[in-house]
Design a protein around this nucleic acid. Sequence first.
DNA 1: AGTATCGAGTTTGTATACAAGTTGTATTTC
DNA 2: GAAATACAACTTGTATACAAACTCGATACT
Lengths: 226, 226
Amino acid sequence: MKKSALFDALRAGILDLSFPPGSALDEAALCESYGVSRTPLREVLQRLSGEGYVMLEAHRGATVSSMDLPVIRSLIQTAPMIYAAVARLAAENASPAGIKTLKHVQSGFRNADTPTEMAMHNHRFHEAIGAMADSPYLMPSLKRLLIDHTRMSQRFYDARTATERKTIQQASDQHDAMIAAFEEHAPAKAVDLTLDHWALSRDGIERFVMPPPLPLDPTQEIKDAV
Amino acid sequence: MKKSALFDALRAGILDLSFPPGSALDEAALCESYGVSRTPLREVLQRLSGEGYVMLEAHRGATVSSMDLPVIRSLIQTAPMIYAAVARLAAENASPAGIKTLKHVQSGFRNADTPTEMAMHNHRFHEAIGAMADSPYLMPSLKRLLIDHTRMSQRFYDARTATERKTIQQASDQHDAMIAAFEEHAPAKAVDLTLDHWALSRDGIERFVMPPPLPLDPTQEIKDAV
DNA sequence: AGTATCGAGTTTGTATACAAGTTGTATTTC
DNA sequence: GAAATACAACTTGTATACAAACTCGATACT
């Protein structure tokens, strides 16, 4: 069980940006802090690489997958299509068991109180939709998508203004509506809701990519940037 | 380089069905025959598992991913959508370099003389389209799809009748037409051609899933089934 | 006779030692 | 003083030995 704990820890750390995109992962240090030897650690890194969390280059170690501009462009271009396709299948294949886990995850999402926790529950929510869609071929893309989407939405859930809090509430309501659409096997409705949900999320991504401009006073600027 | 050779060998063996779906892969035996120790072999298996070639269960070793009926249903349901999406992006993002490799792979496809070689070149052809589409989020699904599609199309390229040979010729012509559509940045055209191409392939899959009925004589039937 | 339990044998998982490769620094040369 | 090369330190890759888990057959019990 030690190995899976290590896997989950690294995965969570990458998703919540404690391991920043592009940063190098030191084998020795990770072995030390998780108390495993290099063999299982390396197997974990291989798995993480297979799922798109890290990049593995020969003789050069592991680095957290980057999130540069072309990647973000790709995400915005591809995400709605994949989410919509998954939603359609989920509505078609919805099972009582699937709906139940979905409701459970969603209640966890509603009760979350830190931005990171919200982002993680949102991740699980959409992963659960993928599981219900039950398509071994779409799942890999969905998972890949969710990695970057979750990383970018860290800012989304860090609500600072009343407007932002309202937006989050809106996203949560959309989750509920989506569950209802799945439950009544309404693919078209599920797709529409999913696209609305995506549109909402897009704004958060834009805030992540283009943060508010720094103050014009240079000394202030340096202080804020740290 | 030994490790990547091992990876390619296993990958090719799985795609051409020399390792049948569902069969177990013995670590010791593979180490023996490829002359590597278990550590790199296991890393290769991890990678293959990440890409969907094998299933890895704890304390239970690696098995070649199966191709049971639900999976095939999923494939038929999902494939056209993914292929179409990839084709659209490929047409939009087509680059001279991408077109060049596509033409190269296609000439290899035309000159292939065994069913396996044809299936492999077809695999590479569609992988090259995926590369040109340049979407890190669609690629994983495309690759997953191609694994099973290639395994199922082994029968497709094993032409026994004049009709079957004609069908293969038709598929090859479609490849050429698709390249042309990419080259002139015509997404709609590329999508249409891709869907036609898929329709053709579907018949081959049906022949794979539902082989011609066995003779009615029971003794004959048992002999053939072995 | 059927089922449950124990144990030998086999297979998988982990740790560690060693080999090979890469990076960065220092020294030498132009 | 700048550039190139060689060396040293460090990081990654591989082999092997050992530990843990599972399988399957034999024996005992219901």
